[in-house]
């Protein structure tokens, strides 16, 4: 990787803690559009996040777990 790209990637990484589409990233995003290595890098970070979301969908609470929870809190009986 060439030196100027290392510097840009370092800056890019500092911004990656933000939302990936945060306005603070605009200048870097512009560079990324023109730089294949940086584009690769940003795209694959975004892809990793997306894959994690796809592979961890929302799971319903199992019925027996729900029942046990309400029972342990003594909330399983309707008030008379």
């Amino acid at each position: 990787m060439k030196n100027h790209k290392k510097k840009v990637l370092d800056e890019l990484c500092n911004y990656l803690g933000q939302d990936l589409n945060h306005p603070m990233c605009q200048e870097l995003i512009q560079h990324v559009q023109e730089c294949p290595d940086c584009k690769f890098y940003l795209d694959t970070v975004k892809l990793t996040v997306n894959i994690f979301r796809e592979t961890h969908p929302t799971t319903p609470v199992p019925e027996d777990v729900k029942k046990d929870l309400l029972k342990s809190l003594k909330l399983d009986k309707k008030p008379s």
């Binding site: 990637l9 990484c13 290595d37 890098y41 994690f52 592979t55």
Partner: peptide
């Protein structure tokens, strides 16, 4: 350290191709 960052050519693969059992295990 960005020196350690490698560039890989897999970002264009369709997401559905990646969601196989082996990939999930790696994740």
């Amino acid at each position: 350290n960005p020196d350690k960052i490698q560039i890989h050519e897999w970002q264009d693969l369709p997401l559905k191709d990646m969601l196989n059992d082996e990939f999930r295990k790696n994740l």
